[in-house]
Design a binder for these strands. Structure first.
Lengths: 356, 356
DNA sequence: TTGAAAGCGCTACCAG
DNA sequence: CTGGTAGCGCTTTCAA
């Protein structure tokens, strides 16, 4: 029913091994034999059985990706670029969502581990390293993206999250905001670091950190629009109301802005808003959203590159850490007529049409 | 180095077969033996080798997904729901993007075919059936989503695209539009059918189809925002300008709306716009976008259900076709003060806060 | 340049 | 209820 190498070998009166070698571009096959084999292979539309090959070689040519939410544009973009790069080398991506649930993430990682994938790429929502030691014990290489864990020396690709917080907050300060709030993300590295950046920028400007101005969203990357609205509801009840807001990410910012606009708050006049992610729809929102670009595409590409480097080396190479520089993209949500640095904003604003 | 069933068997003084049976919940194993095996398995954190299992059973527990663009919210949502449902039954999803390129799609399908996946799920951008006959010859079951092909009797899950066009166009007519334009998608079933619906709704209302009012975008689901802007540029140069616009999908509509707004066109006063997809950010756009919901999530779930049905049946079941009913979600981009049917719009408008 | 033997780790089939 | 025998389709190592 299904064709095997054996069949082709019999057809051609050569041995099965010859076929195998031709198919893997093994050098020591005569040109004529090679042609004959290739011709027959094409004619029969034969493809070697991956499972059999995997069994012998121990390689599946499969890379696993675990993210909180495939629908989130950031992770979707990472998945896309990752799969594009891996494909060039014959690897495919197998995807899995953790729904920002640490337990589910562990289950998923275990399932993928059982499949003996060649590498795992993980945007983890876990706060402990146990699972990763577990992965290491199975000798499966892995690359963390977006989120890193303290005390874990692993491959990592992400953005400088403290700088994200600094750029965003400093921008709000630059345009004249005096009371800057922050809707922060979950208690994992990006959330923590962006908040640190926020605090540091405030401190540098001699401004006080006011706890009431910091609203926490437990789930930072799923169901975010509603979370943003809820956070904004709290902020609007504060006295005095904040006049600047840095959101952990753009979906949160979107929810927050909608709520504010629906309640008569003018953006940016009453409240300037900066998000993070520079998503493709940012410039099409009710108020085009200033954001910090975290180079989602590049994160996927670099994670793929690291994965391939591991896959191509005999010995596992030393863990590599790649921290990308975030970039402010100013749009209308922080376009104050009165602020200083108008020229700077205008310059940065040029980015607007290039972004996406 | 890596543990095998053989090792556990030796440990426990039973045969390898016993282990295998316990791990697959085979009934004929004594309770005591089963407990002992399970305990040791857990202790060693042993997982059976998938490649070896696949080789014997001929099943990979892998489902392939081929879509034009993983970043497109529609396909991202399909991928997400698909993977969620499949996971419940132990299947994983392996993803691949065709970039809306028929040749690339063929290459990808062939790669996935070589991996002998258990099922393929495809949103095809091809216009010919050859590749699908090819798939059938390999005995790989497949499910088409979103786009179907004429003359192909295959499993299909999608939306009634003609009705999409009718609902959108009729809505524009209802609110009083007299000159309704259409930015149409690629020449595959959704694009063609939505356009047919558009024409039919116009005809039913006794309105003439004006060719100039129909702008074609070759690539309907990638790089759409710019495409929408280009199309709108053409439309604004027409005399008389259209006062209503139905766009093939929401990203196109977003690009078109941005361009129009940037050129002084008021939406909905000068131009009412309806898109399709009901994407999660539709209600956060510069002008919240009326759209036709195509039940992306449900499409993924149903495709998964069909795939599982195939996977669970000995003989391949008869191809199943599932056509979902689209639904109008009215928002501000079609909110005319002067139109009739205000009450209907208001009623439909209730959907606004439920959607997503 | 070609090929034979051995075996990857598991499951199916049938005998005890 | 338990276990032996075969073999899935391929690659690897080494001999010819």
């Amino acid at each position: 029913m299904n064709i095997r190498m054996k069949d082709i070998a019999k057809d051609l009166g050569v041995s099965l091994i010859t076929i195998s070698k031709v198919l893997r571009n093994h050098p020591d096959i005569g040109d004529e034999t090679r042609e004959r084999v290739l011709a027959r292979v094409k004619e029969l539309d034969y493809r070697p059985n991956f499972a059999a090959r995997s069994l012998v070689t121990g390689r599946s040519y499969l890379v696993g990706l675990v993210v909180p939410d495939l629908l989130h544009p950031f992770f979707a973009e990472v998945a896309k670029s990752l799969s594009e790069v891996l494909r060039q080398s014959g690897y495919y991506l197998i995807v899995s969502s953790s729904d920002e649930d640490p337990d589910l993430e562990e289950v998923e990682i275990n399932h993928l581990l059982a499949r003996r994938l060649d590498t795992l790429i993980i945007a983890s929502c876990r706060t402990t390293v146990d699972v990763f030691f577990h992965i290491e014990k199975q000798d499966t290489p892995y690359v963390l993206i977006d989120r890193c864990l303290p005390g874990l020396s692993a491959n990592f690709v992400g953005v400088d999250d403290e700088l994200v917080g600094i750029l965003a907050t400093r921008h709000l300060i630059d345009i004249g905001c005096k009371k800057i709030a922050h809707i922060c993300g979950p208690e994992i590295s990006p959330g923590i670091r962006r908040m640190e950046g926020y605090k540091r920028a405030l401190a540098e400007a001699g401004m006080k950190v006011i706890d009431d101005y910091i609203i926490t969203q437990r789930k930072g990357d799923v169901g975010t629009k509603q979370g943003g609205a809820e956070a904004m509801h709290k902020l609007l009840n504060l006295e005095p109301r904040p006049d600047g807001l840095f959101c952990f990410n753009d979906p949160l910012a979107m929810g927050a802005m909608n709520y504010a606009l629906d309640h008569g708050v003018r953006i940016p006049e009453d409240l300037a808003v900066v998000g993070c992610g520079n998503l493709h729809y940012d410039d099409s929102l009710r108020v085009p959203l200033s954001s910090i670009d975290q180079h989602s595409r590049k994160i996927g590409e670099e994670a793929a590159r690291i994965a391939l480097r591991i896959l191509n080396s005999k010995m596992p190479p030393k863990p590599e850490t790649l921290v990308l520089q975030p970039e402010l993209i100013a749009r209308e949500s922080t376009q104050r007529r009165t602020g200083k640095n108008i020229s700077k904003k205008a310059r940065v604003g040029v980015k607007r049409n290039q972004s996406r």
